[in-house]
Simulated assay, not measured.
Amino acid sequence: MTTSTPLRTTLIGVALAATALLPLQGTAFAGQNDRVDSAATPVSSVAGIEDATARSLAVALTDPAWGRQVRDAALAADSVDLRALTRTSTTVAGARLAPQVAAADRGVRAAKGLGGRVGSLLRVGLADASMKASLKGGVAPLVAAAPSDDDASTFTAYDSAGTAHELSLAAAPDRPVYLVDVDGAKAVTEGLKVVNEALEAKGLQVPVPAARLNVAAPAAAEGIDTTLINSVRLSDDKEPWIKGDAEIFTLVTGFGKDGTPRVDTVEMPYLNNDDTTYYPNQILVNWSNYKYEMADAVMMEDDGDTNYQALAKAIVTALLTITDQGVYIPLADALLDAIPTSWWTDDPDYVDSWYTLAKATTGTRNGAAANGWMNVSPYHVAAL
C-alpha cells in the first residue's frame, strides 16, 4: 500500500549528498530521555521485537489460566497494555512472560528514539472485531505481530506450539488472531515532542524575539492569522486492515521570521481511515511564525519502525543547508529528499503534500500525489 515507484522516485529525488544519516530501522540516537533504556536494551527493529513477543505470547497461552486472562482482556477492549497485563498477572505463564515483555518494551522505545517518559508501548488485542464471536466460541487463537511490509500479501501468526502460519492480508481470517502492536497514538504524540525539541534546539521552531528582527511586535489584541482545515480526505492512508487506525501527522514548512527554515508539527489523531471525510476545524498553519505568506505541508503516517530522533536529525540536517534568498521557495522537496529511500518501507510513510499554501488560500486543494485533499480557509484567532 505504499506509493508507486515512479511517483516515489519523483518525490524523493536525489538524497542530499551532505547528509550521513543512519537508517531508522534498528537505530536510535542517544538522547537525555532514553539513556537508561538504550544502555539496558540493544536497539533492534520494532517489527522484529513485535514478532518475537508474539511468538512468546502464543506459546504462553498453553497455560489455561493465562489464556483466559488474555481472552477476557481482548473481549473487554480493542487492545490492552501488554506490559501491564503481564505485570499484574497472577498466573504462572503471565508472570514468566513479564520480564520479557518489559525488555521488549524498552527495546521498542529505543528503536523508535523515545525515552522512558512515554511509558509502555506494546499492546495486544484482537486483530479485527469480527473475531470476537469465534473467540467466545472457544476457537484457539493465533498470535501475530503487525506486518512490517506494506506491500506484503500475507502475515505470520503463531499457534501455542510456536508453529508459524501464513495468513492472507486480503481479508480477516475466521480464526481469532491476537495482534501485538505498538500504541501508535502514544508513539506519535511523544515522537513529535522529540522532533520539536530537536527543531527548537537548532532554531528551526523557536519564535524569534521582535527585538532581534528589528521590527515592532504586533499588539497582543490583534490575535493571530491562521489557515484552518475545514475538511480532509485520503484515498489511501498507507495502513492495511490488520494495523487498524492510521497515525497521521503533518510537517508544515516555511521560513521563520528570521529567515531560517522552520518546521511545525501537526498531529491528526482523528484521521483514522481512508475514503472517509473528516471535519476537524483544525489549525494547520499559524502565520505569525512565518516570514512569507506561503508554506508547504507534508503529510506522513507512522508505520511502526519510525525512529523520531533519526527523523528529526534528517530534517535538521537538510533544512540547515538552506538560506533565505529574499523570496519564498518551497521546502517540501528538501524535507522529502532528506529521507533515504530505505526509510519508505514501513517507516514514516509519505501520504501526500501541499505546496505553496498561501495565507489567503481558501477552498479545496488536492495533494501533489493525488492521494488526498484538504478544504482550507483563512481564520483569524482573536486575542482575549
Rank of each mutant, 00 (worst) to 15 (best):
A221F: 12
V118G: 06
S231D: 08
A111F: 01
P261I: 05
G304F: 01
D245N: 04
R87S: 14
A217K: 08
G254Y: 12
W354Q: 13
G113K: 06
A54G: 02
A54M: 03
Y379L: 10
T356D: 12
N286W: 10
A318I: 00
N371E: 09
T356Q: 14
A145W: 02
A15H: 06
T154E: 13
S134N: 15
T41E: 15
K359F: 03
P6N: 13
V263K: 04
Y350L: 13
S235K: 15
T250A: 14
D324I: 00
A211K: 15
A211I: 06
A95T: 05
V124R: 06
K186E: 00
Y278A: 09
Q69H: 09
N371R: 08
S148W: 05
I329M: 15
L24F: 05
V188N: 04
V351H: 01
D183G: 01
D72T: 12
V70R: 10
I12Q: 12
A152V: 00
A76M: 14
G94F: 08
R109W: 04
S56C: 10
P173W: 04
V14D: 07
A104C: 09
V177G: 01
A129N: 07
A60F: 04
L57G: 11
T5F: 14
A84E: 11
V14S: 11
R83T: 13
D258F: 09
V381M: 09
L357T: 09
L75W: 14
D105M: 10
A198M: 02
V263N: 01
L7D: 13
G254S: 12
S44R: 14
P42F: 02
A76I: 13
D303V: 05
S148R: 07
Q325L: 02
G113T: 01
A111H: 03
F255V: 07
A358P: 01
I229Q: 13
V232M: 09
D181C: 02
E301T: 11
D305W: 05
Y350C: 10
T323N: 15
A47L: 03
D128A: 13
A216V: 11
E301G: 01
A297K: 10
R123A: 03
A297Q: 12
T27S: 06
Y279I: 00
L331S: 11
I315S: 04
R55P: 11
A20Q: 13
V194H: 05
S45W: 03
I248L: 10
D264W: 11
L284D: 15
F255G: 07
L167F: 00
L335E: 00
G13P: 03
G244V: 06
R212Q: 08
W241N: 00
R117E: 12
